[in-house]
Nucleic acid binder design. Structure first.
Lengths: 173, 173
DNA sequence: GTAATATCGTTTCATAGCTAACGATTATGA
DNA sequence: TCATAATCGTTAGCTATGAAACGATATTAC
């Protein structure tokens, strides 16, 4: 997990860190927004933990990474998707999509074919084997999601979602 | 950005997705916890956006990745750190620390030396050049953090942090 | 005191991910 | 028409990342 900051058990920034930041960066301490630091750190930590847990407990069975799985998911929902569209959906570069779908093709989970009319376009489609993998993995994946947030009440889940959605919108993430 | 799920503008799961999940995974729809899906998706999306924004707007000036930066940060605070400890702090493997510190050493931002008493141990230390880079980058990094969460009120920031901290604790992330 | 075990960092090999460059194709415009 | 521009996917070359294996060293057991 990549955290940048260190925190004590109560989620407070360590005194050493405040001192160092103050001394070395010439930033007055009151210009340090600790709430922002805390939000950013905790979000990153949860995201990384989430990804690691899923890859370890669910996806590793089939040697899939988070990104591979999210590509398979998109193909599961949308049947056949252009590589360009896949790049947008998963927000990685076209080059990465090219590499990952090549790997998935080697595993016979997807196949690629070129549009007959516009040969610049490549469609990616789930194979039957790929479909079976998704039918097996998706319920386990969702079970993992539920477990991870189970320490929050439904209302807290809704609140966190709403707040984060606003962050996403404002930053155009 | 790696999202797995698709959502409409209001953050609702698309009808196509519900249909497909229901039909293909043999999961009854009422066993699908959409709040959990939403929390997980939004967290991952913010984390990814955050990382990309920082790497693009702040860290790329010095060709640093998020992880490289977090290693430099730890060294900035703690002066000299064993590679094993660095691996724990940033939660990446020892192998990754080995490679990244090697890269940072090539850039003359850190140096490594072996403990004279226990030659299995390697300490990593920030160079003066590395210190300068941190003094330049840290205020910009913090500015980015503040910007990202600026759409939330201070109380909302505290609430989100508190919820996420509970998730981290429960899952031991 | 020596052999077995544990610890630590590095190397090796694989995938993921990015950018830049390239090649093929289609669209545009004079 | 034909040249130029725009679009799309792939390739090449790089860093990041992890797992497994390895080599050196230190610790423990007998």
């Amino acid at each position: 997990m990549i955290s940048v900051y260190s925190f004590n058990e109560d989620g407070e920034l360590l005194q050493e860190e405040k001192d160092t930041i103050n001394r070395l960066s010439k930033m007055p301490l009151d210009s340090l927004n600790l709430d922002a630091v805390s939000v950013v750190t905790n979000i990153y930590r949860v995201a990384q933990g989430l990804r690691n847990k899923m890859e370890r407990e669910v996806l590793s069975k089939h040697g899939l990474s988070w990104t591979s799985f999210s590509i398979l998911y998109d193909l599961w929902i949308w049947k056949s998707v252009e590589t360009k569209k896949l790049a947008e959906l998963t927000a990685v570069s076209k080059a990465t999509i090219s590499n990952i779908t090549k790997t998935l093709e080697k595993k016979e989970l997807v196949f690629r074919r070129t549009d007959t009319r516009d040969r610049r376009i490549t469609y990616v489609t789930l194979t039957d084997k790929g479909k079976k993998v998704m039918e097996e993995l998706y319920p386990q994946f969702h079970k993992g999601e539920v477990e991870i947030v189970s320490s929050l009440s439904v209302n807290e889940q809704k609140d966190v979602s709403e707040s984060l959605r606003r962050v996403i919108k404002e930053n155009q993430f």
